[in-house]
Structure formats: structure tokens, C-alpha cells
Simulated scan of single mutants.
Amino acid sequence: MFSKLAYSVFEQSIQDYHKYDNVDQPISNPYSNDTFEHLLYLKNWIDTVQWHFEDIIRDPNIDPVEALKLKRRIDASNQERTDMVEFIDSFFLKKYSGVKVKDNAKINSESPAWAFDRLSILALKIYHMHEEATRADATPEHRNACQTKLNVLLEQRSDLSTAIDDLLTDIENGDKFMKVYKQMKMYNDDDLNPILYQNKK
């Protein structure tokens, strides 16, 4: 099933990142660039680096100049994340391009790739909540509270994985159809963000 494959790739990416735990560590994607796994690994690597960007920028002692630089990197990472989602949806559009859509087929509230995006973030939550639930220097109360949260996240993973596989089955059978909208983010666009285009004058 696609969800099981995706989650295993996400876990591998997270484990690989934490061998160094450094936001500047270059990616070393183990999958051929013409494979679905390559897209998944890259997607999660972007998510993992951004996760740690978000940790760093919340340091109350961060230098304001460095914080602004980091905010710019977070903005760029958000754009990369969106671009990767659209690449993954392109994979599914091509994969199911020959499917005969039934007359009563319905559209889903989100595309397959945005569902995989949620699974990628969920894999990160599970990894880090497990760290907290087993942290040796934490209090028993902290570990127990985090274990309770981890149990919920694991249940959520099961439900989301089932929903993803059901969606892909429905698309493959023509019971649902894909319709992908580009995100068209405006704040990074020199021609759409008024602050940016006014400064170009």
C-alpha cells in the first residue's frame, strides 16, 4: 500500500537527518531521482529541516539579525514544501490518467499529495514525541504525558494511512477523481506581494 511505503521512506529520512541533526547537513537521497520514493524522501527531508528551523527560531535568546535570516529560510522552505507536494500530485495525475472516471464520481477535499504531506508531518511528530516519552532526564510525569500523546499520534497514523489508501483505491476505481489546484502563494511573489512590488518602483 502506498501509505506504508511512504511512511517507511519518511522514517528513513528522519533517521538519516538525526545522524547529524544539523539544518545545514546536505541531503543524500538514497533513491533514484526517477522514483516515487525519491520524491517522498526529499519531501520529508524538507519537512524535517523546517521542523528544526522552527525550533531554533523560538530560542528566546536568538540574535534578531539571525532570526530574520532564519525567517527568510523558513519562507523558502515553505515554498519548497509546496512545490514538492505539487510534484507528488503530478505523479498521481500521471499514474491515474488512464482511469475511466464514473459519472457519479466525487472529488476529495484534498489531493493525495496533501494527505501525504500530513503523513510526513505526523511521522515527525511521532519521532519527536517518542524522544520525549523516553527522555532519561525528564520526570516520570513528563514521560507519561508524552506517552499518552504518542498513543494518540499512533492511532492518528493508522487512521490517516487507511484514509490515504482508501482515497487512492477510489481514484484508481474511478469512484473519485483528482483535481489539483496550484497553491499560488502570493507572499513570495515579487508581482503579487504589495510590499515587494512597491519596493521595485
Rank of each mutant, 00 (worst) to 15 (best):
H38E: 06
A133M: 04
W45Q: 07
Y127Q: 04
A113K: 00
Y17Q: 05
C146P: 00
V49I: 15
Y7H: 10
Y7A: 07
V23F: 12
A136Q: 15
D59I: 06
K71M: 12
Y41P: 01
L68K: 14
N144D: 14
R143C: 03
F10L: 03
K95C: 01
N108M: 09
Q12L: 15
D75G: 13
L40F: 05
T35C: 08
S28R: 13
Y7C: 07
L122C: 03
I126T: 00
K125A: 06
I62G: 08
I88D: 04
F91V: 06
R58T: 12
Q15F: 11
Q15P: 04
A113F: 02
E131L: 09
V85S: 07
L124R: 06
H142G: 05
A123H: 03
I57K: 11
T139L: 13
L68N: 13
A105Q: 00
V65L: 05
Y31L: 07
K94R: 14
Y7V: 13
D21R: 13
L119I: 06
E54L: 12
F92W: 09
H38K: 06
C146H: 11
K95T: 14
H142F: 13
P30E: 09
N44W: 01
K19Y: 12
A105T: 00
I107T: 09
N78L: 11
G98E: 07
W114P: 00
T48Q: 08
K102S: 09
F53R: 05
S32K: 13
I14F: 04
D55G: 04
Q15N: 14
K43H: 14
I126L: 02
Y31K: 05
S32W: 02
K71Q: 13
D47C: 11
L40H: 03
K69T: 10
S109C: 06
R72M: 11
E131F: 10
D55H: 09
N33H: 14
K43S: 08
M129L: 06
S8C: 07
A113T: 02
E66S: 11
L70V: 11
E54V: 04
W114T: 11
H142R: 14
W114F: 10
S32D: 15
F36Y: 14
D21T: 12
H52Y: 10
I74M: 12
F91D: 01
L93W: 01
N44F: 02
D117W: 07
E131D: 14
V49D: 02
L119S: 07
I121A: 14
A145I: 03
F87I: 13
K106R: 12
Y96L: 02
D34G: 12
A115K: 15
K19G: 08
Q50L: 07
V9F: 05
I57E: 08
E66V: 08
S90K: 15
E54I: 11
S120G: 15
I74V: 15
Y31P: 05
R118T: 05
S28E: 14
D59S: 11
E11A: 09
Q50A: 07
A115P: 01
H130I: 01
E86H: 11
F36I: 06
A6T: 08
N78Y: 10
E37C: 09
Q25F: 12
Q12P: 03
I62N: 09
H128V: 05
I74P: 09
L122D: 03
I14G: 00
A145S: 15
I57M: 08
Q12I: 07
L70N: 13
